[in-house]
Simulated assay, not measured.
Amino acid sequence: MGKNQSTEKQPAPSPLLDEPWRKVPWGNNKENLRYVMDYKPENENIKHLRVLLYGPVGAGKSSFINSVNNVIRRRIGIPAAASATTSDTSFTKKYETHKFQITREGQKMYYPVFFNDMMGMEEGTNSGISLKEIELAMKGHVSEGYKFNPVTSLSDDGRDYNPAPSEDDKVHVLVCVLSANMPSITPSILQMMSSVRETASDLGIPQVAMITNIDTACPETEKDLKNVYKSRHLQKKIKTFSSDIGIPMNCIYPIKNYSREIDLDDDVDTLILSALKNMINFGEDFIEKK
């Protein structure tokens, strides 16, 4: 007598959705690349859009800056020092502005979107960047080259404190960078992120999130990057991050940073350009109000 149908073991669901939950124009980067490359701030009082990256140690902040550099300059480069090994401590030790040189109308100039990298968030006291320093950076009070000290935060009478920041010194877009390989966000870091988001909201700064390492976190995406929005695992991970950090899913962008590639890759560029275009749009909306 055969087994009851209800007790038969059901096949595991496919790791891929039948349809992607977000549409991406794969194979046609020309339009987004042109949009990104043609960008200039409309506000004449602001020469460049400033993007600040923050997040846990090892999330891929510096690698994202390098990836944007590759897309903008159309070649592989490493303007931001990034670690290739996993560590519990931050590889970035100082506050640094990353600018990308381009040629426009026959002249050498800097692309008008600047990125600021900072020390990562770490567990425990007297480790990693402090909440105060992130807030000071958002307001433009942290000087270029400031060396982070987990034991002593920057004070308003310190040598590296900028008492009168210009609109160009202030942050116009805040980006939370998280790794898809993270099992979860620890309560202490989650609390710190919540405080950062609250300060940014008070300042009116638009906020987005980058989810890195989508290839190593999901076998289906590692096989084909185009599976990123069909991967059940990544969809669940992004929903969880969205709920945890309070950033809507339409402001969260899964990407793959350039890591092992020695030449540009169209699929990697597609995701980075999509994220960068939206960053520019949100930042431009913000500085138009200045």
Rank of each mutant, 00 (worst) to 15 (best):
M279Q: 09
S243A: 12
K256A: 06
L53V: 01
H48Y: 15
G158D: 12
L136C: 01
M249L: 10
G204V: 03
N278A: 01
D244A: 07
C218R: 11
P219F: 06
T240W: 03
P206Y: 06
M182E: 08
T216C: 14
L264C: 12
L131P: 05
N162V: 06
K61Q: 02
R50D: 14
A137T: 02
G2D: 15
P41Y: 05
S143G: 08
S188K: 13
R197M: 06
L225M: 05
G60I: 00
I247T: 02
L225C: 11
V51P: 04
S195F: 15
E261N: 11
P41H: 07
Y39L: 03
M249F: 08
L131N: 12
E96A: 01
L264D: 07
S201I: 14
T152W: 12
S90E: 01
S143Q: 13
G128L: 08
Y161L: 11
L174F: 01
G158S: 14
R73Q: 14
V142Q: 05
I280Y: 03
N43R: 09
T216S: 06
S83Y: 05
A59L: 01
N213K: 09
E105S: 15
T103N: 05
K256I: 03
M279T: 07
I245E: 00
P254G: 08
P11E: 08
K30F: 05
L136G: 00
Y95G: 10
V113H: 02
I238M: 09
T221V: 15
I78W: 12
I65R: 03
S90G: 00
I129L: 07
T89F: 14
I252E: 15
L178A: 03
N28L: 07
K3I: 03
E96I: 05
Y253I: 04
D263W: 13
K93P: 00
I102C: 09
D263I: 13
T92V: 04
I211L: 12
E123D: 07
Y253S: 03
E123S: 14
G77S: 14
K9T: 06
R73T: 14
S188Y: 02
S67W: 08
V57I: 11
T221C: 13
G283T: 04
F282Y: 10
S14N: 15
N281C: 09
P150R: 06
G128I: 04
H233T: 15
N257V: 00
L178N: 03
D168H: 09
E222D: 13
L225A: 05
C176P: 04
P15A: 10
Q235F: 10
D18H: 04
M210R: 02
N32A: 15
R50I: 01
E135R: 10
L52D: 12
